[in-house]
């Protein structure tokens, strides 16, 4: 490498490392507060170094019913992902294969649903759930999450199926394959990465959502995201407790995304086009 290329390359890497620090340090701060003793969190002047302790975790287990919160979050994320895929994947397939002019319009309709401000749907949806007695139940959260997620999955799978050449299925159909079998056995396996990405986004969305559960669930049906919010503001709960709580709410999802990074990046760039 000549010097004329080496210097810009060094500058480029330096810039990226600075950006990495900028984007990662705040998150690392939250993760490390979990291991700080409360005294050091409130020390003045504040400092970064500390003597590690697990006190904060003990406190989290004392104050919160962690396993219950996680179970509710998993239930909501799991159910809404399952039903969103059940509704969205076939719709995406059919819209991609249909030559009817309406198909494109429906696909864009699904994309537009993604842009609805959550609050605009929240108040009437709240009243609807009140009327049928589902306020306070995690089921109402699944219902609304499913609506947003199935529209998103339809749109994303539409774009995946559209880039899949239909010849393969046509050959299967000609061979006397049932239409559903052509979808299930031929087309679906070919877009496996799209299904993984869709699942990832459904889980990510439901797990991270707090607006709907905050207003739709009550004390014994709230997920961990709502607990996180209520953790802040209570007197005996410090940033350390919050950091410890984040170990259960945030860090698992970050690790899952890092592990499935290929699908995450692919989905982000494909799903929004």
């Amino acid at each position: 490498m000549t010097i004329t290329r080496f210097v810009p390359d060094l500058a480029r890497r330096g810039f990226l490392l600075a950006m990495l620090a900028f984007f990662l340090l705040p998150f690392l701060w939250l993760a490390t507060t979990a291991y700080k003793p409360s005294v050091e969190i409130f020390s003045i002047p504040p400092h970064f170094g500390f003597t590690p302790t697990f006190d904060q975790f003990a406190k989290v287990f004392l104050v919160f019913d962690i396993w219950r919160l996680i179970a509710v979050s998993m239930l909501i994320a799991g159910c809404s992902a399952f039903f969103s895929l059940l509704l969205g994947v076939p719709a995406g397939y059919a819209l991609a294969r249909s030559r009817h002019p309406l198909a494109m319009g429906i696909a864009y309709f699904f994309m537009a649903v993604r842009m609805i401000p959550a609050v605009a749907a929240l108040i009437p949806f709240y009243l609807m759930m009140r009327d049928i007695g589902l306020i306070g139940s995690w089921i109402s959260v699944v219902l609304i999450n499913c609506m947003l997620n199935s529209a998103f999955v339809s749109w994303m799978m539409f774009s995946y199926f559209r880039s899949l050449p239909p010849e393969l299925e046509e050959a299967a159909l000609t061979d006397g394959c049932h239409q559903f079998a052509a979808f299930w056995r031929v087309a679906l396996p070919a877009v496996r990465s799209g299904v993984i990405a869709s699942t990832l986004f459904c889980v990510l969305f439901s797990w991270n959502d707090f607006l709907y559960p905050m207003f739709l669930t009550k004390l014994d049906s709230k997920p961990i995201s709502v607990a996180l919010l209520s953790a802040y503001g209570t007197k005996d709960i410090t940033w350390g407790t919050l950091g410890a709580l984040a170990h259960f709410s945030t860090i698992p999802i970050v690790l899952i995304v890092l592990f499935l990074n290929r699908y995450f990046v692919q989905g982000l760039t494909r799903g929004i086009h």
Binding site: M19, L20, F23, L24, P26, F27, W29, L30, T33, I41, F42, S43, I44, P46, L204, W207, N208, D209, F210, S225, L228, L229, Y232, W239, L242, A246, S249, T250, I253, V254, V257, L258, N261, F264, V265, L268
Partner: peptide, 26 residues
């Protein structure tokens, strides 16, 4: 891969992180 981490963190937690970092007293 690493730079995308903020996108995966829920805005709720992002808000709490910065609220904590920017508190004037500690």
């Amino acid at each position: 891969t690493l730079i995308l981490i903020p996108v995966t963190i829920t805005p709720l937690v992002v808000g709490l992180i910065f609220k904590g970092l920017l508190l004037a007293d500690y």
